[in-house]
């Protein structure tokens, strides 16, 4: 590892620390939120953003120490495109299996039958 100086040092360090904190918060949420649908919120948002921050830090680090290096951006784009899709599929699976929900969940659907996946 090459030590950086000045603004680059601060920028890379703060991106790495903020990203790691968000990813940690996402995993804490996955471990301690009460039911499946609530747990789904933590990794899709926090972990995606946290890993995105770490990858941005990596882009700045390699751009400063070596030559211009943007290809880590592909991972960030890929994660941000796929996180909603996997969340949607898992939510569908959770609703289909009729998992236990916390008792104060309000079901405000007008016609729940219109969504059921059982044909």
């Amino acid at each position: 590892m090459v030590e950086l100086h000045g603004w680059a040092d601060w920028l890379v360090s703060s991106l790495l620390i903020i990203g790691a904190l968000f990813a940690l918060i996402g995993s804490v949420g996955l471990a301690r939120l009460p039911d499946f649908m609530a747990r789904l919120h933590a990794p899709t948002k926090s972990t995606t953003l946290g890993v995105g921050g770490v990858i941005l830090g990596s882009i700045v680090y390699f751009s400063v120490t070596a030559s211009f290096s943007w290809h880590e951006l592909l991972i960030t784009i890929f994660l941000f495109l796929t996180a909603p899709i996997s969340a949607h599929l898992l939510a569908k699976a959770g609703l289909h299996l009729e998992l236990r929900r916390v008792e104060n969940t309000r079901d405000l659907r007008a016609q729940p039958k219109q969504y059921s996946d059982k044909d």
Binding site: A23, G26, S27, L30, F36, R39, L40, P43, T47, T48, V51, L79, S86, L90, A93, G94, L97, L99
Partner: peptide, 14 residues
């Protein structure tokens, strides 16, 4: 439940 485990695996990947 199984969806919980799949979600955990996905987070482990990331």
């Amino acid at each position: 439940d199984l969806p919980d485990r799949i979600l955990a695996l996905d987070t482990i990947y990331i």
